[in-house]
């Protein structure tokens, strides 16, 4: 057997792939949240950030391709392993759980809702296929009020005209159904990670009972923080704390 066969064709190899791709995806969702939380600072920050990302060009595409690949591998492994395990189990009559955590029992369901959410999320904010009216390209442009810095370097200069992502996000969440779906989805994602982020340590062979309690505590806190952070944005929109820029709001009223 070659290396690729070991990794792609054995149960442990596939779980290894899930864990590694899971880490990449966790890295992404966490970074993504941190970026998005700039919405609370000022429109300038979020819009500058968004423009900076889209100006990365090939780098952005490589990143997207990488994420897509990870997602595909992650889901492929999940599906293949699940199907194989189902086949292994066969019929079962009176089964009880002994101690498995709730989060761990619903990995497939939470995973699939997250997938549905990702698709919708991309359609809404990246492609403009859903909620086209509030899509950034359909809103008035925004002019940067100051410089946007990345690592101390100026990334977007004052006065640059950029898409108004800030208003797009807020307008999007003013649709209560969308906001609720979002909240549910990130809630499930947090649940997915409640098991996933701990599980990956086991899969990679880094967990043992010496510090498994500590690991569980850290993961629980991190997932709660992740959920609260994500909850904050639609929450603040619905609570009226965050409002779209007047220009954008006006353009919609037209």
């Amino acid at each position: 057997m070659t290396f690729l066969q070991h990794i792609f064709c054995t149960t442990i190899g596939r779980k290894f792939l899930m864990a590694v791709t899971g880490i990449v995806l966790i890295g992404f969702v966490v970074a993504h949240l941190v970026g998005n939380l700039q919405v609370f600072e000022s429109p300038d920050r979020l819009n500058g950030y968004a423009h900076f990302l889209s100006s990365l060009g090939p780098v952005l595409w490589i990143e997207r391709a990488g994420l897509l690949l990870c997602t595909v591998i992650h889901i492929w492994a999940a599906v293949v392993l699940t199907l194989e395990s189902r086949r292994a189990r066969g019929e079962q009559h009176d089964r009880t759980w002994i101690q498995a955590t709730l989060a761990s029992r619903y990995m497939r369901s939470t995973g699939f809702v997250v997938l549905a959410f990702i698709v919708y999320h991309l359609a809404q904010f990246t492609l403009g296929a859903a909620q086209a009216a509030t899509y950034k390209e359909n809103l008035p442009r925004y002019t940067m009020a100051g410089d946007y810095h990345v690592l101390g370097l100026t990334a977007v200069r004052e006065g640059t005209v950029v898409p108004d992502v800030y208003s797009m996000v807020i307008l999007g969440f003013q649709n209560t159904a969308v906001a609720v779906f979002y909240i549910v989805a990130v809630g499930l994602l947090a649940l997915h990670l409640l098991h996933g982020a701990e599980s990956l340590f086991q899969t990679l062979g880094w967990r043992n009972r010496r510090w498994s309690r500590g690991l569980r505590a850290v993961v629980t806190i991190a997932c709660a923080a992740y959920f609260i952070g994500n909850l904050a944005i639609p929450g603040a929109v619905i609570a009226g704390i965050l409002n779209p820029l007047p220009a954008a709001a006006a353009s919609l009223r037209k």
Partner: peptide
């Protein structure tokens, strides 16, 4: 694997 056992989902049952 070849004998048809499933994979581990780290639930520790």
């Amino acid at each position: 694997d070849g004998l048809g056992f499933g994979s581990c989902t780290n639930q520790y049952e």
